[in-house]
Design a protein around this nucleic acid. Sequence first.
RNA 1: GACCCUAUCGUCCAGUGGCCUAGGACACUCCCCUUUCACGGGAGUAACACGGGUUCGAAUCCCGUUAGGGUCGCCA
Length: 442
Amino acid sequence: MTSEVRVRFAPSPTGYLHVGGARTALFNWLYARHCKGTFVLRIEDTDKARNSKEAVQVILDGLRWLGMDWDEGPSMGGEYGPYFQSERENIYQRYFDQLEAGGHLYLDNGAWRFRSLREVVVVDDMICGRIEFDLSNHETHPDMTIRRPDGSWIFHFVNVVDDIEMRISHVIRGEDHLSNTPKHLELFKALGKPAPRYAHIPLILNKDGSKMSKRDEGASITSYIDGGFVPEAVKNYLTLLGWSPKDGREKLEIEEVVQLFDLEKVNRKNAHFDIDKCVWLSGQYMSSLTLERFAELCSPFLVGTDAEGLEAAKLQPVLALVKEKVKTFAEVPAAISYFFTEDYSFEPEASEKALNQPGASARLNALATAFEKVADWSPESIEAALKATAVELGVKAGSLVLPTRVAVSGRGSGPSLYHMMEVLGRECSIRRIRQTADSKAA
RNA sequence: GACCCUAUCGUCCAGUGGCCUAGGACACUCCCCUUUCACGGGAGUAACACGGGUUCGAAUCCCGUUAGGGUCGCCA
């Protein structure tokens, strides 16, 4: 029972969830699920200045959006709570008293410092291997502060106390903590408790290798939510940063990742973040979404557009048309706009190429006349009518396609023309073709 | 500055002494398919940081250099 795997993600509520933090959470989540262990979410809000309900909410929302459910933590509870450090005052006091009684602490300018054991500390890391840190030199390794003069607690101390109290078996965290680990090990030793296993995962940097800061593209999970990425795709992309199934596959069901995931196989090299590949993966997931889920995930992006609140019968056929075309939901409003307004704009280049040609107007009118005679308004019939008209006019069918497309949509590209016209409807399609023939075409 | 980690195409991964004239994916270029764009299919450009070892043999092991990243807070 003591060998049970318990891992934790312990973010500080800074107001945003960094992509690197999200991946740390993900690797914890994957390891917990792989081992059938427990994934704990603990909020490290000892810094009262930065602590706010909203800031915590951003983290919870981000984790939920990525489909990482926690077994213990905020709104879940659990037998090792509370899960906010701001509510664990008495626990820290107890451990503090123990350290003080053991002679490990001394006062310095009103703050409490931990007297280092001044030894060589070995970190046996599951990813980085065995590393020795020589802490014997006071100059290069000053005693760490664990409590401020105002009584508030410092990260290193509360982090260790909570890992003890919450029975954490494996600490999976960013490599930026690797150099802090010997200090933490000293604390475990002074407290007389066994330390957890450590696994430091490499960091995520910008594509050019520079440090990723808050403002950089893709740094905040909120940017993926707002950017309309398919959440499964972002989760999938994150698993591929530092880990791989080894067989070259890129798109993997998360259940399979859970099955295959292993800390020992995680890379030791920092990953450079490539938003293009993430967008590509989102597009891959997009096409495999059911129309229902696609419509559901689209709806927040339709707010404020002509398509907002439209009944499913009107909206879904249009969404079906663009589903295979977009890579993010954010692209949807622009992709469908001309279906829901007569005030659609014409792309200059497409207009120039398709409409500003001699005889374009006459050809469009001939097409409109042919479409008026189509018995059933199906893609097949529309196509047949267009091809027959091409024969009549003595031109290639292809040369009528683009002008028709631009006339009914204003654009040079889009869904299959015949399917698009079917959804647009006979009356609307013909009206747009005639209007364009009158006003735009030469 | 000290200490720690890392080093394969522009990027993400494969490769753990011979199967590597280094493989896959994104991006890029070209071709095919197609009514357009996209999808799909095919082809191409492109990498073992450098220098020493060890070995019959090194992308793979060792050392050094260089480069990048991290830590050294009364931030987390």
